[in-house]
Design a protein around this nucleic acid. Structure first.
Lengths: 252, 252
DNA sequence: TAGTGGTCTAGACCACTGC
DNA sequence: CAGTGGTCTAGACCACTAA
């Protein structure tokens, strides 16, 4: 696992990509700035536009820049510090929102969808639903300042949601478990399944990342004592912005 | 988060990519098969080689095919079932290797490196090392049948390794904690930090994946009662092949 | 309308593989 | 050596944005 070292890549467009990458790293272009246009860069590097376009495609795949058709190529703002999601959550009060405010970031959650509907097949299977049972679906988009940092979708079997008096969960996601507990649905354990993949086009658009930037796909099941699944949540995070931290005791 | 639907993409090279993707999905090309050469495809689709090359680059980024310079383009073998890594590990005996054998897969671990050396800066910081303290480094490459599925690097402060009589850890990684425990170094808790990123060129080569395929980067710390870090392990998994499963009780 | 990024061509040459 | 994928050119046209 040696690092590649300096080792000039032969391909001109790769050299251009490296050069621009370093220029951005040096601060020669700041986040939000536009790069020179492709014809301009072609002049600067004495190269044709096709090759320049390929060079920029590399940087876009890396998430360093973002091209906007008809407008220009803009340097992306990559936050120095990653968001950390702790499991189990830090003891006592301080919610994730509080932590962010303490770090000088304004969190915001935006309800994208809230309805009762048939669940996607993958969800129905995991929830062990009776045939044709519907679920309460709520989807959220979570922002840090103006930047989307998470897509979240929650699925609750209608039988459970009804008897727990969860009509339209336009409350914040964290309040749901409290409401469930009040009605006798006690979550006894959680299971999370973490995967890593390329985003769908829709996710890339929602999270404002390029399709080359991977996402973390975290499926979380809240189970009660009897092993029933009370809720299933699918969280999608831009990989470059997050760190998932799990902690557990050794042995039993 | 609607799906894109049919919606023909205007770009010809994207159409070709879609067409080839479906052909592979249909089984028209099987894993290991070579695709027709680029000039051939150019003839078939009445396109020039440049555009064909772009189409194939898309499939390569998706991990569906693998190009080998001077040889050809080969369909990748994507295992239907993902490997699952369970935390905490399933109770009683059955190791991960046993599980794989039961699934008809032959596991193999290959020692890539084993030496005492200065740790990388990032490792030294996390291990809270005294200045200039060296570490015992061992790196492994783990295979399922003939396919690499994990890169693993373990770092143990030399002061701990020496007194625990861990000279050259060419033993399997799991044996290390037992050896540490025998010598009074009891692991009391674990911390794992999961990230998701694009692979380095070296990782892509070792794991035989394309640079567009994301990897899971899992840093694991084994801590003793006093909060000392006994061992730090960095695991890198090809994202498409793995699922990390964490389970923990609710509340206290 | 002018300027931007995105696509495409037809052909050329290069680097690498394997016979 | 022939065949493969990788790169590059010079120019053209398209699609989109913003004045």
């Amino acid at each position: 696992m040696r690092t590649a070292g300096i080792e000039a890549p032969t391909a001109r467009y790769r050299q251009v990509a490296n050069d621009l990458r370093e220029a951005i790293a040096r601060g020669q272009f700041s986040p939000g700035d536009a790069l020179p246009s492709q014809p301009e860069l072609a002049g600067i590097y004495r190269l044709n536009q096709t090759s320049i376009s390929r060079a920029i495609a590399i940087l876009a795949a890396e998430g360093l820049v973002r091209t906007e058709h008809g407008r220009g190529t803009y340097v992306q703002d990559i936050p120095a510090a990653k968001h950390t999601r702790r499991i189990p959550p830090p003891a006592s009060g301080s919610s994730f929102a509080d932590e962010m405010r303490n770090a000088g970031i304004e969190p915001r959650t935006e309800l994208v969808q809230a309805e009762t509907a048939d669940p996607p097949a993958a969800v129905a299977q995991r929830l062990h639903l009776r045939a044709a049972e519907q679920v309460l679906i709520s989807k959220w988009l979570i922002f840090a300042d103006a930047r989307p940092i998470q897509v979240s979708a929650s699925y609750i079997p209608l039988s459970i949601a009804r008897s727990a008096d969860l009509a339209l969960p336009d409350t914040e996601p964290t309040a749901i478990h409290q409401q469930l507990a009040k009605n006798g649905y006690h979550v006894s354990r959680f299971v999370e399944e973490v995967e890593c993949r390329r985003p769908t086009v829709d996710e890339a658009a929602l999270l404002r990342i390029s399709e080359g930037q991977p996402v973390l796909d975290v499926v979380r099941l809240a189970l009660d004592q009897a092993g029933r699944t009370l809720e299933m949540t699918i969280n999608v995070f831009p990989g470059q912005m997050w760190l998932l931290r799990y902690e557990w005791p050794a042995d039993g």
